[in-house]
């Protein structure tokens, strides 16, 4: 048994590569699905093609970066309050 096979099947590099491929396909299909639904727009931009996809991606990236910046200022060792 090689080292790879002793790993849980979910952790093998092959599985992880397949998962990434599957994930990418799902993402592409979800964006394409926009062409087949009737967008009911409330504010204009939210009815445009692929709005929820880029909006989700960009706002999440913004939140991670903002958290990172705030962390520089407010992070302390987790023993900070111990006496």
């Amino acid at each position: 048994m090689t080292e790879n096979e002793s790993k849980h099947w979910l952790l093998r590099p092959r599985t992880i590569r397949l998962l990434w491929i599957g994930f990418t396909v799902v993402l592409a299909l979800l964006v394409l699905a926009d062409m087949f639904i009737h967008p009911h727009t409330l504010f204009g931009v939210d009815g445009t093609f692929g709005f929820y996809a880029w909006y989700g991606l960009l706002t999440c990236a913004a939140m991670v970066l903002f958290a990172k910046a705030l962390g520089l200022l407010l992070k302390r060792p987790d023993t900070y309050y111990d006496d």
Binding site: F23, D34, L57, A61, L65, L70, K75, R76
Partner: peptide
């Protein structure tokens, strides 16, 4: 779409989310 692309953001930015032994004030 919203959730899956949020997930994409998570895994793309995973290096930025490395856990540290910290608390936040």
């Amino acid at each position: 779409q919203l959730l899956m692309f949020s997930g994409l953001a998570f895994f793309l930015m995973l290096p930025l989310m490395r856990r540290t032994l910290t608390i936040t004030l």
